[in-house]
Design a protein around this nucleic acid. Structure first.
Length: 550
RNA sequence: GGCGCUUUCGUCUAGCGGCUAGGACACAUGCCUCUCACGCAUGGAACACGGGUUCGAUUCCCGUAGGCGCUACCA
């Protein structure tokens, strides 16, 4: 080796990392001549899982950032698992969340149909291509035979080591195959995997992932029984035909990514093969495993964007929307589970996320689903909302509690409460304090605006004990008399009258007065409260309190 | 079992060879206030372990151990 080459080698070794970075940069740069097209392709087997929402969100952010297109495809190749209403549910969920698709089922586009069950003929055509090229074969083993085989042989796998002892077009004589076909026996098409090859998957998040093809099995690509392909075949054919440039999906697909690479190769599509990015999974808030519906039921948080009524079991699962979450909060919370902008910014609009998003900043390990932080995000977004935005939700809650009111009065309460919102003990009976994170948290904290206190817990309530003493009753009677004489019951007038009276008598009437009107130590400014209630109600509550508490 | 991915406070994470290891949630305390809350301030709290490479490893490499996923005629 001559001197120059040695120098080059040293240089290469030293700058390997930087070169790698450059290479990726150049590749991404070069790739931009290809239009960015990504897709979210759920299976309509039930409600949309919150993890799926995050996957869709990342795809959406990526597409927007690169001025690309976002496709909505339905992967309904398993007729047994189809659930009516699931597709509509998914579409409605994204509509609520504010994630928009450019093409796909219900959105139109030039690459349709976008429902896999409507693409049978396309898949058949490509299965034939593989069969004719000798890259796939027909297998006649029944599911029962396979089960028996698996029971008999430990770790049985349909691959190079076993396929010649099975009933397929490779092992059987041609006449036998023709006979089986002629007699109408059902079969599946399996992908012929050549063993002993290192298959590389270049993942945008994880780098180079290598798997030896010997550990892969001859995957079923197509079932003659329902004339439908399995996920793997349909996925590759569709992504190719729809000119998908990047496949951003969950980590559960990483083990089958080498198979997908092999399929692209078998079809001769390797040069336009999409780039892969496998996202980390969402894990249970506590305990082991990935996030499931059960966790939500157990710990009391939704795992679905919208309330879901299971048509088969009749079971109802709560949704983020119905629980009172704001879609912006859900999006923001989800975005940060597995990705961050690289600085300390946490509250971001969808547009900001579009410009900040970066696949290389996605984490590699699974993220525990910290629903408590989701509550905090909602709290943040709730406080940023205008008072007006709270009233429709608040109105619903009042109605649910049988309160009749006017929009004006409700708006007044919301305005007061929004500034002065309160302590809340959560439903499970924990002693933990909770902020107002949902509009519904307001009701137990402000029902006194609409309902007079029914009882006063003189012994149990520390606030009453502390503020209701000897002589308080007399003082409150005096104040009630004073208020009764007022003609102007506005905040200003009340403040003037009460302050003057309090100052003259060196009295501090606010806390006992609060006991009278609220029944405990809560609520907004006393003058605002009294003005809201009006003279009649204020005085009546005071007289009642005096009578009961004496 | 096999294969792959992964490992920084209780949780989400920043860090891309040299830092008193930063932020947020949650928790605790204090301040503010006619009450509650909001808000603000303060505090405790982490580099899984063992080998290398290096003048120097949380950071790079290799093991070990944990975690996660896949291992279907499901996606």
């Amino acid at each position: 080796m001559d001197y120059k080459r040695l120098l080059l080698l040293v240089f290469l070794l030293y700058f390997r990392k930087k070169l790698y970075f450059c290479r990726n940069f150049i590749r991404i740069f070069v790739m931009t001549d290809r239009k960015v097209r990504v897709r979210f392709a759920p299976s309509p087997t039930g409600a949309l899982h919150i993890g799926g929402v995050r996957t869709a969100l990342y795809n959406y952010l990526f597409a927007r950032q690169h001025g690309g297109e976002f496709i909505f495809r339905i992967e309904d190749t398993d007729s047994n698992r189809f659930v009516p209403g699931a597709e509509e549910y998914i579409i409605e969920s994204f509509k609520w969340l504010g994630i928009k698709f450019d093409e796909g089922v219900s959105f139109g586009g030039n690459y349709g149909p976008y429902r896999q069950s409507e693409r049978r003929d396309i898949y058949k055509q490509y299965v034939k291509v593989l069969l004719d090229a000798g890259k796939a074969y027909m297998a006649f083993d029944t599911p029962e035979e396979l089960d028996a085989k698996r029971a008999e042989v430990q770790n049985f796998q349909y691959d190079a080591s076993t396929r010649m002892s099975m009933r397929n077009s490779l092992a059987l004589p041609k006449e036998e195959v023709d006979r089986l076909l002629a007699e109408g026996h059902q079969y599946v098409v399996r992908f012929l995997i050549q063993p002993g090859e290192e298959v590389h998957v270049d993942d945008l998040i994880r780098g180079d992932v290598v798997i030896n093809s010997s550990i892969l099995d001859d995957k079923v690509l197509y079932k003659s029984a329902d004339e439908l392909p399995t996920y793997h075949l349909a996925n590759i054919v569709d992504d190719h035909l729809m000119e998908v440039s990047h496949v951003i999906r969950g980590e559960e697909w990483l083990p089958s990514a080498p198979l997908h690479v092999l399929l692209y190769r078998a079809f001769g599509w390797e040069d336009t093969m999409p780039r892969f990015a496998h996202l980390p999974l969402l894990l249970k808030p506590e305990g082991n495993g990935k996030l499931s519906k059960r966790d939500g039921d157990k710990l009391g948080f939704p795992v679905f964007p919208l309330e879901w009524h299971d048509p088969k079991t009749g079971e109802v699962s709560s949704g983020y929307r119905e629980t009172g979450y704001l879609p912006e909060a859900v999006i923001n919370f989800l975005a940060l589970l597995g990705w961050n902008p690289g600085n300390d910014q946490e509250i971001m609009s969808l547009d900001e996320m579009v410009s900040l998003f970066d696949l290389s900043k996605c984490s590699k390990s699974g993220a525990r689903f910290d629903y408590v932080k989701g509550i905090w995000f909602n709290h943040q977004y709730l406080l940023r909302q205008a008072d007006m935005d709270w009233t429709p939700e608040f109105d619903k809650i009042l109605r649910a509690n049988g309160i009749e009111s006017t929009p004006e009065r409700e708006a007044q309460v919301v305005a007061m409460m929004k500034q002065k919102v309160v302590e809340y003990t959560d439903k499970l009976g924990n002693k933990k304090k909770r902020n107002v994170s949902f509009v519904s948290d307001l009701w137990p904290l402000c029902d006194f605006f609409f309902l007079a206190p029914q009882a006063y817990d003189k012994e149990g309530d520390k606030f009453i004990r502390k503020n209701w003493k000897e002589g308080t009753a007399a003082e409150m009677t005096e104040l009630a008399d004073l208020l009764e004489g007022l003609t102007d019951f506005s905040v200003e007038s009340l403040k003037q009258a009460v302050d003057t009276w309090a100052e003259a008598g060196e009295k501090k009437p606010w806390n006992p007065w609060r006991v009278c009107l609220v029944g405990t130590g809560q609520g907004p400014d006393m003058y605002e409260l009294a003005a809201f209630l009006g003279k009649e109600e204020t005085v009546s509550r005071m007289r009642k309190a005096v009578a009961i508490l004496a």
